[in-house]
Simulated assay, not measured.
Amino acid sequence: MAEIIGCSSSGNICGDHVSDQDIILSAISFSATRVLVKSALIEDKADVDSAVTRLANAFAEPKPKHLFALSDGLSISGSEQTRRLNVPGVPVTGGLAGDADRFHSSWVMVNGPVQQHQVALVGFYGDLNVTYGFSMGWREFGPERRVTRSVENVVYEIDHRPALEVYTKYLGELSKDLPGSGCVFCYP
């Protein structure tokens, strides 16, 4: 039986081309590797810790060789999820779903209709060698700043000034299109 998982995206980067109009599909087949897929819906942000911990525990014994995670990137804190998925000896890769520069809704699909507020984990078992790598296109620019107040992944103050005030100063006319316009400066 095939397991089908996926998520919405904020775009795709291939070489120096950035697009949010593409669909990326991958099909993987194994002859001797077992795959286990588990998912959970998280309706309340307060439930992220317990739901992700329950999901991770479903992969505790025997330990998988690798975990792959996809999550709704707008309603679930990636930082909280990562803390709960940190299982010693098990590498974890994956990502957070997005919706380009709209920051309105994102979704994850696990063997059925797409849903918001969902976390999916795929465990890979057996005689399997896993390698992974990453690269990012973010580059520093402008003066160095310090986040002085935040809650989880939401920044409220930068250098003791309201974050929106700092962004408005640097983005000028583009600030009316925040948060999406902040991504204008993300790509090399």
Rank of each mutant, 00 (worst) to 15 (best):
E3P: 00
G6N: 00
S8L: 05
G11N: 07
N12K: 05
C14A: 15
H17W: 11
S19C: 06
Q21G: 00
D22G: 03
I23F: 01
F30R: 06
A32L: 02
S39V: 00
A40P: 01
L41V: 15
D49T: 15
S50R: 15
V52Y: 06
R54Q: 11
L55S: 02
N57F: 02
F59T: 07
A60R: 15
E61L: 09
P62N: 03
F68T: 02
F68K: 01
A69Q: 10
L70K: 05
S71N: 06
S75A: 12
I76M: 02
R83H: 08
R83W: 04
T93D: 13
G95W: 09
L96I: 00
H104E: 15
S105I: 12
W107S: 13
W107I: 13
P113G: 13
Q115I: 00
V119S: 05
L121K: 07
L121Q: 10
Y125C: 09
G126C: 11
L128T: 04
G137D: 10
G137F: 02
W138L: 15
E140N: 13
F141Y: 15
G142C: 06
P143T: 12
R145Q: 12
V155W: 07
V155E: 01
V155T: 12
E157I: 00
I158K: 04
D159C: 10
P162V: 01
P179A: 04
S181W: 04
F185L: 14
C186Q: 15
